[in-house]
Write a protein that binds this DNA or RNA. Sequence first.
DNA 1: TTGTACGCGTTATCAT
DNA 2: ATGATAACGCGTACAA
Lengths: 345, 345
Amino acid sequence: MSENDRGTVNAVSPRKPAATIYDIAQLAGVNASTVSRALSTPGRISAKTEQKIHAAAKELNYRVNPAARALLTGRTRTIGLIVADITNPVFFDIVRGAEREAAEHDYTLVLAEFRESAETEMFTARRLIPSVDGLILATSRLEPDEIRGLAEEKPVVVINREVEDITSIVADVAPGVDQAITHLAGLGHTRIAYVAGPQRSWVSHKRWESILAATARSGMEAVELPSEQPVMQAGRAMAPAVLSSGATAVIAYNDLLAIGLMQELIGRSVSVPGDISILGFDNIFGADFTTPGLTSIGSPHTEAGMYAARGILSILDGAPSDQTSHEALVTSLVLRGSTGPRPAV
Amino acid sequence: MSENDRGTVNAVSPRKPAATIYDIAQLAGVNASTVSRALSTPGRISAKTEQKIHAAAKELNYRVNPAARALLTGRTRTIGLIVADITNPVFFDIVRGAEREAAEHDYTLVLAEFRESAETEMFTARRLIPSVDGLILATSRLEPDEIRGLAEEKPVVVINREVEDITSIVADVAPGVDQAITHLAGLGHTRIAYVAGPQRSWVSHKRWESILAATARSGMEAVELPSEQPVMQAGRAMAPAVLSSGATAVIAYNDLLAIGLMQELIGRSVSVPGDISILGFDNIFGADFTTPGLTSIGSPHTEAGMYAARGILSILDGAPSDQTSHEALVTSLVLRGSTGPRPAV
DNA sequence: TTGTACGCGTTATCAT
DNA sequence: ATGATAACGCGTACAA
């Protein structure tokens, strides 16, 4: 019954409570509303009292209470970013870009990862959406309708996906693929294999279509080889199919597949790029760890994250949300050692 | 003057405002406070009205307004994580662990990156601290006093660093190093080189001390070689020093150094592990991209992030904040192909 | 068991 | 130019 009963309270709060505008008002000898004005609408106040108020604020180490402000304004100055897998190297550049752009505009990034089903993703989105001003979905497995539903509550931007009525950030694959095919054509290759990603992957199809178009333009042949999963092990497993495809250059759906394939080929004493050239997509962290380094068609992931955050901010500023803005977001070829001249027959 | 003047407003808010407990109260025909109780203190309410309220809440798709709750309770259910560099592979596992643990307890992770000076870090911390319940500093360059100052406002936990009076999460290097040295001893090595990290790095010294102790115990020699920066290029530059050191096995301060060194050695036709064995620290993403794969002394980064978040939560629950809790957080050896028998002389 | 009333810190609308 | 006051949504002590 004693006041010591709730020992937990004491243990947490030798912390001094944060100063409020009332504390400042008292210290500066003015009204709290004057303090608020001095701090949020500078210039509307006599220079002298403004001085005093700022001095008092600094002395008390004042910073606004975001909750109080949010309660009134409805804005949290926070952007949520939901990714499937934080440790996927494709994502941390996106995270970085979004965080950078947010911080630039004095916004804060809230990050969440869903590792399971679309159900988990929806759960996560629902959990986050009340506390953010907008939501970025970096690799959503949600249905278009679900995404549009979220967008009715708060601004939503998707990355690497196209959803009607939703702002989406997608890098244009064509330039990078064109560079890659031109590069390979210049090296004398005439038959290309594409190790595809997951059947359901919209991105994988886009990449394949782009390759088809570019090879056709260069008078080359292209063949698509289905793979199991976009991971290294699956890449290794593709070696036989690749070897029997007759292709002298392989483009894999992503770098992990490419690296696995390359390791397996080298393990079988197939020279890369002597006997076969290998390219990946994404230019992930570590693509330069391999020997030879992996030539890759890279997307500007950081920029994608930045544009996504910027998209949220501009919707908050009143822009329509259905504009797809891939402009200025293009892939490009990153040349390393895994591509070389077509072997003499 | 017309009501169309503020066109921006219209553009943003075809969005329906979120439902409040008042909306639920009206729909269920009860008072708002009853709704609040039904939702936050289940059981204190007649089963029948509780049913009605929950039904109404579901129908209106109600979720609490975090700002309102935070204003009242002083808790945001949010944990801030500040890292120097999101794209450093050591960090995303930390991020993942912290996010996972936070989500587990219905907390949300706020992420911020400072890429510059300690000044930027302090600025970032100050920006974040009003809106979070606690702060994790993953690689702080702040002075101990600065960190303690932050800890006066909100719970603070540091990772990979020890600060007096501050909960710190540091993996115990010894077990991993012991395993590594035992492994190398078993392979016949007797002279080890340590390619050190930055002079000022507390972690690098710890690693060196641990190596010294372990090698002494095994009757081996160890020599420390200073490097410029913990990056691949610097690792490449270490090749001559390593070769002239007389060591048959090298442990690098981190995997990037190790990979750079390995690439350079292989480029000089030095066989790895035939002529020299190489180990790194951290077991980063991509350590298996190299040929041979890099043997590395790994830390459980995900767990570190989890423990850090858990530390914040337990301080919030009333635990003292000065307990250093490295228990159960130990390094271990991840064996790959870059280590092998000592070459015959 | 349920309703009433107040306060959290801030901004905005009045009035002075 | 500045002070007084209401309002944001929620939780809770108190009253009924």
